[in-house]
Design a protein around this nucleic acid. Sequence first.
DNA 1: TTTACTGCAAACATTTTGCAGATGT
DNA 2: ACATCTGCAAAATGTTTGCAGTAAA
Lengths: 140, 140
Amino acid sequence: MVQALSQQGYRVTGPRRALVRLIADRKVRFTAADLEEDVASATPAVGRATVFRTLELLLSLGLVERVHTEGERRDAYVVAEGLHHHHLVCSQCGVVTEVMGCMVDDLVSSLAQAADFQVEGHWMEIVGLCSRCREAGSLE
Amino acid sequence: MVQALSQQGYRVTGPRRALVRLIADRKVRFTAADLEEDVASATPAVGRATVFRTLELLLSLGLVERVHTEGERRDAYVVAEGLHHHHLVCSQCGVVTEVMGCMVDDLVSSLAQAADFQVEGHWMEIVGLCSRCREAGSLE
DNA sequence: TTTACTGCAAACATTTTGCAGATGT
DNA sequence: ACATCTGCAAAATGTTTGCAGTAAA
């Protein structure tokens, strides 16, 4: 990620390094506030604005993605793993599993065809319990 | 809609009537701000707070739905047409077409099964050009 | 040495809330 | 009558921006 920054001509600064380190191997979605909190205990002097600006930068480079959550006010992000895909989001632990969308793409085009619609893009998200949380739940 | 309100024991007031009238046959997504603006020219004295409170009420009754839009800061809504379904949203005119989700449901369950995931819900939205906008575009 | 980047604080935009008064039922 | 609903204005959230100083390159 850091490499990607410098390759694109952006400066590799302390705050960016710190944030990227915190983001890089997150497997769960996170918000700007999450990062702000985490960076505060790791590298005290990184400001709110920088968190937002860095996220926007990473977003524009395609290194992270913004994801929606029904009923959630603030934006959430996930590390972008590859090309087009979809998310399975655990409602308990927040883990995001990615699913390549070959079948989804087919479905999308057939639905669109039926409605005489020219597809520009699509978005799909499945919410539920991941296997770990389901098992943990059934033990109680 | 008005009927649904009174049946559920909510009062049918002037502001609610005015808002429902503005919402009822919208075929495009709208935001709280849109409504606020429209209601201002129709029935001057309806406040911001009432717009939000009424939307929340209609939402809780399942009469409208909240929809996301990538990169959109404020919440948007559409009139809820039936049970579970998905949206085709025109990026040009904003018209929302609903698609019943039988095939989507199947797909969702097979994806989830592969990932050992217990589905609680899913969300899908397709963005593109509706047939009308596509035709209009090709005439230019 | 240059100019992109940063922190801070103030500005913004949207949504929520407290409250006294208006209004359906 | 009485509780629900309303407008207003203030508060709460979440994000963006202006600016003077800092630090990559």
